[in-house]
């Protein structure tokens, strides 16, 4: 089994790692880099708890090999905002009660962040479609939709 030397930038910080061919990106992030905000919820690429940004694009990190991320910029929930601050989307989740157990939340935040990046003022249908690869078992999604709308409105005000 081959080991590959890779370089990844995670939340702006460069990391060099020697990884086995089969190491999944999510395990690199959680176990090797100790960024445990990214979660694992299924085996079949359905739940989206492991969603991270890879070169700005949300992907399910349980279905990407760590070696495939060589040279990539990875963004995780830990990198969304500074130490005590929260982004408008994170704020929106608290204001609108868009989370309960919090397990799906990091994945939702990464997907939502990417959505707002590409579509700053999404409709309800667009939000629902965008998060359709992220399962939440607690909230019933209504308040997650509102959280994204809150962030869109708040960001829009600042323009």
């Amino acid at each position: 089994m081959a080991t590959h030397n890779i370089n990844v930038t995670v939340n702006g910080e460069a990391h060099a790692a020697a990884v086995d061919s089969r190491l999944l990106l999510v395990h690199l992030i959680r176990d090797d880099l100790a960024l445990t905000g990214t979660h694992i919820g299924c085996d079949t690429t359905h739940c989206g708890a492991c969603t991270v940004l890879m070169d700005g694009v949300p992907v399910k990190s349980c279905t990407v090999l760590a070696v495939q991320a060589d040279g990539a910029e990875i963004g995780t929930v830990e990198g969304l905002a500074g130490a005590d601050g929260m982004t408008p989307l994170q704020e929106g989740f608290q204001e609108e009660h868009g989370l309960q157990c919090g397990f799906c939340t990091p994945g939702m935040l990464m997907t939502g962040t990417a959505l707002l990046e590409s579509n700053p003022n999404p409709s309800e249908a667009e939000i629902r479609e965008a998060i359709s690869g992220n399962l939440c078992r607690c909230t019933g999604y209504v308040n997650i939709v509102k959280a994204v709308e809150y962030a869109a409105a708040k960001t829009g005000e600042g323009d």
Binding site: T36, G37, T38, Q94, L99
Partner: peptide, 11 residues
């Protein structure tokens, strides 16, 4: 919420 929203939950 703040700890969950910042990836600092302890699951």
């Amino acid at each position: 919420d703040p700890r969950f929203l910042q990836g600092k939950g302890n699951y």
